[in-house]
Computed example of a mutant assay.
Amino acid sequence: MSQYRTFTATDAVEYARQFGGLSDPASLVDAQEIGDGNLNLVFKIFDNAGQSRIIVKQALPYVRCVGESWPLTLDRARLEAETLQVHGSFCPQHTVKILHYDTDLAVMVMEDLSDHAIWRGELVKGSYFSQASRQLGEYLAQTLFHTSDFFQHPHAKKADVIRFTNPELCEMTEDLFFNDPYQVHERNAYPPELEEFVATLRDDAELKIAVAGLKHRFLSQAEALLHGDIHSGSIFVTQDSLKAIDAEFGFYGPIGFDVGTALGNLLINYCALPGLLAAREAADGREQRLTDVREVWQAFAGRFLALAAEKTRDQALAYPGYGEAFLQKVLQDTIGFCGTELIRRTVGISQVADIKKIDHQPMREECLRHAISLGKTLILAAPHVQDIDALIARIRQNG
């Protein structure tokens, strides 16, 4: 901590010159701070021709939107860099490349993705990327299978669980996903007009027991090295490429949490589209989001089973039929965690552009109601949904 200092743009340029791996480091001359998140400084580094070449990211020792009253560990920079390096070793085509990181300064240098766009922003505009959902499913399958007990040696897995222990950021997830939305809390950020509707979450014993079960699984099931926050804002896309970034919440947890978080953000967009696009475009977009949900799951499950058949090292886990049985449990976890993502993004502090970009206040409130209602439905239905078709049917039934 004694060596830590908060970077300026000048610092970021100099650091990129040292550690960006460029053949012409002196060509780097300028930096622009582009971070719009709550936890970090992010600099885009430009050369003397005005071209963006490198990204420098530094963790801040507090939550940016709250201030120094909410301190955070700087070790998350190491956790992020090492999570992305591990994920990149198994799925390089869909993971941002880490060029360098420094534990003391909590800084990493990574490839520039200026030729990509943030997926959330494109979804808000109604843009469609035909390969993105299947590529996301591939990323999830490769990273989660290869860091699970199906593939890892038990000794290596247990050592990695310790290496990737991430208590402070996990505590943030535990609060924001499983605690805050189901109680009166100063961090909650829904419109006051929804108070009576949101209060039904706090008063629903069946729902709160189901959420408690999901939190318990999050706390106790170290199944694989998760990204930990794999939403549409932490994914960059082009028409033929997808790259995951921002893995500072990485830790060993339940596989369904990553898959559910990914699907939850697609469904937030599904709920928000009537407020973002004209009626016909919104209807078409909602059908596409349901197709995306189906494709993410099918790509994930299909690849996971193929990898399990080819690469499972544990004799018991390799027994015919176990992979399918395991994925049935993962599907139910996925649906439950998907529901908590919908609720925490609408009731809690971590609001997203899909909702915030809706200009018409009554429509925004209606989209929020839909997302909250769908989240509750999925949490309660999770143990009873047997396949992806049944999940899509439940979503349609909710409105």
Rank of each mutant, 00 (worst) to 15 (best):
N269G: 10
F178S: 12
A282I: 04
L276Q: 07
Q58R: 10
F7I: 03
P92V: 03
A299Y: 09
E111R: 03
T8H: 08
L290A: 08
E324V: 10
A371P: 07
A210D: 01
L28A: 05
T103Y: 07
A81H: 09
A301V: 00
Q361Y: 09
G323R: 10
G336Q: 08
H231M: 05
K157S: 03
A106M: 07
F151I: 11
W119N: 06
G67V: 02
Q183W: 00
P167T: 12
D175T: 08
L105H: 01
G233K: 08
I235Q: 06
V96A: 13
A279F: 09
Q183N: 01
G121V: 05
I230V: 05
A59I: 11
L99H: 13
L207M: 02
V13Q: 06
P92G: 04
F178D: 00
N179W: 08
V13A: 02
A210W: 00
T6P: 00
I45E: 10
T6I: 11
D284Q: 15
A247M: 12
G348M: 15
Q152C: 13
A9T: 04
A26H: 14
D24I: 10
K329P: 07
H384S: 11
N188G: 09
K125N: 13
G275P: 13
H87N: 06
A309V: 04
L201C: 01
R217D: 05
Q85A: 15
L39Q: 08
H384E: 14
G213P: 07
D115G: 14
K376Y: 09
E248V: 01
H231W: 03
L140T: 09
I268G: 09
V237S: 09
K243G: 02
R396A: 02
Q221T: 07
L267V: 01
I235A: 03
V293C: 06
S241W: 05
L378Y: 09
H216D: 14
K356R: 15
H384Q: 12
T200M: 01
A224N: 03
I388T: 08
P362D: 14
L123T: 11
S148T: 01
L72D: 00
Y319S: 15
T103Q: 12
G213W: 00
A222S: 14
F326S: 12
H116G: 08
A353V: 13
R5N: 07
L380R: 05
T312A: 08
T8P: 05
G260M: 06
G88L: 02
K376L: 11
E196Y: 04
L136P: 07
R134K: 14
